[in-house]
């Protein structure tokens, strides 16, 4: 039974991590309908930036964190401006391949600078965060992830639901020409959504780095794991991303714990195909209304 609970806890925290990673993805998709294959690489960039600032430059943690967020924000902006903008209106596959190209490029660059080894952060989380519950232990990182994640989810929910900029962003996703006619700066919305997404990526990258250490290959693999998560939840739903993340996280740890570790890596994809066959737009995705 303890084993079960430990796996449950692990699954939930892994799932929460996926959900956090998926957030940035959903953000980009919601506003500009771009499927971002460079997601894992963006996370890794954020994680490495934090590593450089916190260990190599020896900045205080909070300052390093803030600079990382600001840096990723600008990076997202730059990516949109120089790579995605020329492609507005091009075919889906070209946009996808562009992000794939970005992913390959970033990955190569990071491998070049940091190599393929695992890097880890200095210990900075307070010990008090670790929860003990009988024999079940919840590591402090997971608790911290959970708290930070909740704060961010709340902020995003609030941002999209109530702030003007959030409403403009949703309006662009909803009906682009109409938003344009009302003076919504559509290109700026795209740029902002990329910037925010990169920021969220950096956040989740840092969290992954704290839990597992940072390794380019591993983090970019998690970036690919985002696909089953968001598809499961529906590409355009933030709530769906969270639930999708939890489902995938639990599935993985339970398969890993009870069946086999090899199966663990593919089980999300198997479930994904099964769910898509029944619900083609994911569990919570908006059904697209199509007319000739």
């Amino acid at each position: 039974m303890e084993f079960f609970f430990q796996i449950l806890i692990n699954g939930l925290s892994l799932g929460f991590l996926y959900a956090l990673a998926a957030l940035g993805f959903v953000m980009i998709f919601k506003s500009s309908s771009v499927l971002n294959f460079a997601h894992g690489e963006l996370m890794a960039i954020g994680a490495f930036l934090f590593l450089v600032l916190s260990t190599w430059a020896n900045l205080p943690i909070w300052l390093a964190f803030l600079i990382t967020l600001a840096g990723s924000f600008s990076l997202g902006f730059i990516i949109e401006r120089f790579f995605l903008r020329p492609l507005i209106g091009e075919a889906l596959i070209e946009v996808i391949m562009l992000t794939v190209g970005l992913a390959i490029m970033f990955k190569g660059l990071m491998l070049f600078v940091f190599g393929g080894d695992i890097h880890s952060y200095p210990e900075f989380l307070p010990q008090a965060l670790t929860l003990h519950w009988g024999a079940v232990e919840v590591p402090g990182v997971n608790v911290a992830t959970f708290i930070v994640g909740l704060i961010f989810l709340g902020l995003f929910g609030f941002f999209f639901k109530y702030s003007s900029q959030g409403i403009y962003m949703r309006s662009v996703a909803d009906n682009q020409p109409a938003a344009m006619a009302l003076g919504v700066h559509v290109r700026r919305v795209f740029a902002i959504s990329w910037a925010i997404a990169a920021l969220v990526c950096a956040m989740s990258g840092i969290v992954i780095g704290i839990i597992n250490g940072i390794n380019v290959h591993e983090v970019s693999a998690i970036g690919l794991k985002v696909f089953p998560v968001v598809i499961l939840g529906g590409l355009d739903s933030i709530g769906g991303a969270i639930i999708g993340g939890l489902i995938i996280g639990l599935l993985e740890t339970f398969t890993g714990g009870y069946i086999s570790t090899g199966l663990r890596e593919v089980v999300p994809y198997i479930v994904l195909i099964m769910i898509l066959m029944v619900k083609p737009y994911g569990l919570f995705g908006l059904v697209e209304i199509e007319r000739v």
Binding site: L87, G101, I104, F106, L109, L111, G115
Partner: peptide, 23 residues
């Protein structure tokens, strides 16, 4: 070891440049 990944970098760059300039 550190030079080898440059290959991936150039490869990715080539894809991007092609898509942007000669779609």
């Amino acid at each position: 070891i550190t030079i080898a990944p440059l290959r991936e970098f150039v490869f990715g760059l080539a894809i991007i440049l092609f898509i942007i300039f000669e779609p």
